[in-house]
Design a protein around this nucleic acid. Structure first.
Length: 203
DNA sequence: CAGTACCG
DNA sequence: CAAA
């Protein structure tokens, strides 16, 4: 386990290849039920480069008019999100060290040219629970900073099967994805990267 | 500002 | 507003 500044935990190769493959199949089923959508920035409506969907009782969404929020239904289909699969609930039990289960699992799909700007996860009412992030597919350059945007940042590579835990002092740290490294994994036949983010929303 | 322009 |  790699301990980074602010107590952020990096668990390299936490998931072996068979577990990664099983997760990808599970995600395929979720995406079939809750299709990927293009999120838009609040105010400007500028589309983000990632596509996303969710599973869980709540999903994180954003659009021009209403901005960042959690809601119970898919913004395009209007249906409830699929349930969080047992394998992810088990992962949370094993790693998060938090009594209540996650309510939201954000599924972000990064094409090989997608990025995610530095941001904080601060839309959850329960900031005591950690945020658990799972990487699948092509590697990425991940960047983490401190709790203000101007704090110095540290960049490192995340590979398929890696898990990052933002908890404790690191819960509100700025973080983002600067680039995807194309063709660095054979897990996803069509390339790209999937990130799963498990979060507890309500105390 | 979960975004991006610009410059060196 | 800053890193890359």
């Amino acid at each position: 386990m790699m301990l980074l500044p602010n107590g952020i935990r990096h668990l390299p190769e936490y998931l072996d290849r068979p577990r990664q493959e099983a997760l990808v199949e599970t995600i395929r089923a979720i995406v079939a039920e809750a299709p990927l959508f293009v999120p838009a920035m609040p105010g400007t409506g500028k589309p983000m480069s990632v596509r996303m969907t969710n599973c869980g009782s709540l999903g994180w969404v954003t659009d021009k008019e209403r901005g960042y929020r959690y809601q119970e239904i898919h913004p395009v289909t209007g249906r409830p999100w699929p349930a969080i699969p047992d394998e992810l609930l088990a992962l949370w039990q094993d790693i998060a060290g938090y009594e209540k289960p996650p309510e939201a699992c954000l599924v972000n799909f990064y094409s090989d040219d997608a990025k995610m700007g530095l941001h904080q996860d601060r839309d959850e009412k329960d900031l005591g629970a950690p945020v658990l992030s799972i990487s699948l597919g092509n590697a990425c350059l991940f960047r983490v900073g401190g709790t203000t945007r101007t704090d110095r940042t540290l960049s490192f590579k995340l590979s398929s099967g890696d898990i990052v835990v933002l908890g404790g002092a690191g819960r509100l740290c700025f973080h983002g994805v600067d680039r995807i490294y194309p063709a660095t994994s054979t897990l996803l036949k069509n390339g790209g990267r999937i990130n799963l983010t498990l979060r507890r929303v309500n105390p």
